[in-house]
Design a protein around this nucleic acid. Sequence first.
DNA 1: CCAAAAGTGTTAAAGATACACCCATGC
DNA 2: GCATGGGTGTATCTTTAACACTTTTGG
Lengths: 239, 239
Amino acid sequence: MQDYDPGAFPPFAVTVDLAVCTVREQRLHVLLVRRGEDPYQGAWALPGGFVRPRESAECAARRELAEETGLSQRTVEHLHLEQLRTYSDPDRDPRMRVVSVAYTALLPDLPEPRGGGDAAHAQWMPLASASPLAFDHDRILADAYERIGAKLEYTCLATSFCPPEFTLGELQQVYETVWGVELDRPNFRRKVLTTPGFVEAVEGAPRRTGGRGKPAAIYRAGAASALHPPLLRPEGRQS
Amino acid sequence: MQDYDPGAFPPFAVTVDLAVCTVREQRLHVLLVRRGEDPYQGAWALPGGFVRPRESAECAARRELAEETGLSQRTVEHLHLEQLRTYSDPDRDPRMRVVSVAYTALLPDLPEPRGGGDAAHAQWMPLASASPLAFDHDRILADAYERIGAKLEYTCLATSFCPPEFTLGELQQVYETVWGVELDRPNFRRKVLTTPGFVEAVEGAPRRTGGRGKPAAIYRAGAASALHPPLLRPEGRQS
DNA sequence: CCAAAAGTGTTAAAGATACACCCATGC
DNA sequence: GCATGGGTGTATCTTTAACACTTTTGG
């Protein structure tokens, strides 16, 4: 910051990229858009775009998400966005120097995005079928996946993947899907219920989950954001 | 990324800021530089500077660190730098739009930085006496402190605060200083020694720590980077 | 001898794991 | 009835936490 001269620095473009994930049909999905222009025309990419002169990166992320994917204004406004990291390799965009701030968001399984404009090209894609993506988006997505898996261990983030009211079975499926392991139901249940503030019971009629089986009690996300002690995955690996 | 027009976007400046921390005299210290120019002339700030056209943010961080603080080339090259987050509030710099990528680094207690150029103004400052800093650096530093505390729980990062060879007492002091708590020595010892790859014993003569007491065995950082299971702080709080 | 810091051992509580088993529903 | 998923109980093992005690140094 010592040597300051506005004219001396070539223009950097600053963009945001979003790894928006959900759990559908027992698999982790990510929201992608198809690129309409070069470079990478026709390729799938993470939604994102340029940060405007008077907005923060997080504001830009919400705006782009609404514009490009047709998610409702309400959804986008209340969404929990987490900054993942910033990608600044000089050659990550062939056109010019672009520094991109990546964000991660977790959503419950929503209806297929529809809507006008850019949104026409947005859709959910299973993570396994997502690559190759445009630019360095494979890398960003891989980082997002790793971060999400790690965060499930020591935060209440898993409830972000669930609708406002959910069953413990649904919550457990989030863990199993993201981690790719099976968990013991009784133990999972105990763990979740004894962690203060993780979930809170919703009074009223229990709900049928699938067609079969006993109706399950329903819960809401609790007030806590961190899990103490953490819920570690069976075979512990970590960043 | 859809609507691309290089001329349509005003120039963003991209900078890096570094929260370089060490443990000295039982307190966490941060490396600061005194600003020589407006804005915030005379105020203390985190070291940092502009990213050049053909370098990544991480390269810029290492370069600026060497330039501004007089740390040796070797130190800077081998340093573990971790990206903290990116700060992009439109008004964070009064001069123009500056987006800054912040990094955190952990060092063993080194001699006071000295050296030519900008480095003349660099010095270690206890975290408690650091504020107020220039720009939004108080915020960055607070985020760095929180991140470091959290990372000690589930990574081997604490060894970065220690010299290449260290005693378990020194390692324990890192935890106690950063977390601001006292830990039970026998339990700490067991935990560290039973975590594979956290530390490895160095054969040879034990070392006197202070003047008094039994000489302590010496250890080196091990190959592991993550701690499983984690070493949780007594009163669990987390981001 | 005493103080100080390293290192060992022991015990009790808390948490994780692996099950067996019962309950309520659709078919 | 039976398959399916929800929910409860329990025995066992591992990890943590608290603390008593021994060892080796300097003064």
